[in-house]
Design a binder for these strands. Structure first.
Lengths: 162, 162
DNA sequence: TCTATTAAGGATATAAAATATCCCTATTTC
DNA sequence: GAAATAGGGATATTTTATATCCTTAATAGA
């Protein structure tokens, strides 16, 4: 069970978009080049963000993507679910229903105990992702990344932002 | 990102094995029949449990599986990881290394900030699974399942336990 | 000893999901 | 009008999950 690499791509792209001045857009092409990713496929991840309402888009030359909300209003969970979907990571196939000892017409009172526990763990994962905002990531990155590289990256992006 | 159905199978099988009297074994065939699962494929899940040391096995007629530890000493995480593996659910491909602004020979000081956060969420999921013991599941099941069905299932298993 | 039954595990087949590319359309900028 | 863009459909490739089959070694019981 491994998350799609598109999740990683979407998170890094949002981090870049968070640094974009208000009103500017950044294209798939620029985001793909910056991260060394296949443009066409990255485009699918960005479309997912768009469909989820996390980013705004515009067409034409100087078109591209920008965040639809402030970085403090975007959580990791928003981004992960936009790309990966919000289906639970554990699917209950209700195999208890195959118990040969069951009387005919027997009906469960509620979800399977195994599933309930697995879903609680799933929820713990989501809760953690929900607790981290994109602004938190930016803050961490600004501490992690040398000022020199931070600055040159920002300029690289600005040169290509429409 | 969805867990293998073998995880569900393994959890239910462990719940059954937990009810087995000391020294008795239950075969793949019985476990498959009880849960309505393909015997050959379920066998792979049970082999995973065996390789992880969660169950003991014995060969021959009246052979099969039994728990290697008390239900209170077995956690959900033990079982999930035996089947699903213990690799983290988020893989960092370190795409930041493709940043075209990086000076040559630049070397990261530590893991990517994005990965660190995703790994914390992964750990929150594991921590929750680690906090639930097989004995907790049994307790819940004994409350959920009607006494009648609980009893007949127990007898069904006993008839087939070697 | 012989036979039936079992787990272990290798080989292979099938189905589903992830990864990726290509192409066409509508929109926007210049 | 030309160039660049996002959106999205179609398709191909690779990887993973699911499933079956078969052989081997061990064990229990007749």
């Amino acid at each position: 069970m491994i998350l799609k690499s598109q999740v990683e791509w979407a998170l890094h792209c949002c981090a870049i978009l968070a640094g974009l001045p208000a009103g500017r857009y950044l294209s798939t092409k620029a985001l793909a080049e910056f991260h060394g990713l296949p443009k066409e496929y990255l485009s699918k991840a960005l479309q997912s963000l768009s469909q989820a309402g996390l980013v705004d888009t515009t067409l034409g030359p100087s078109g591209g993507y920008r965040l639809a909300k402030a970085p403090a209003e975007l959580t990791f969970l928003d981004i992960v679910e936009a790309v990966e979907g919000n289906a639970r990571t554990f699917v209950c196939n209700n195999i208890r229903a195959n118990n040969p000892c069951r009387p005919l017409g027997y009906c469960e009172s509620g979800p399977c105990a195994v599933a309930r526990i697995m879903w609680e763990a799933d929820e713990a994962w989501r809760q953690k992702l929900r607790s981290v905002r994109l602004s938190d990531l930016i803050e961490t990155l600004s501490r992690d990344i040398p000022a020199e590289l931070w600055k040159s990256s920002f300029e690289w992006v600005l040169e290509r932002a429409g």
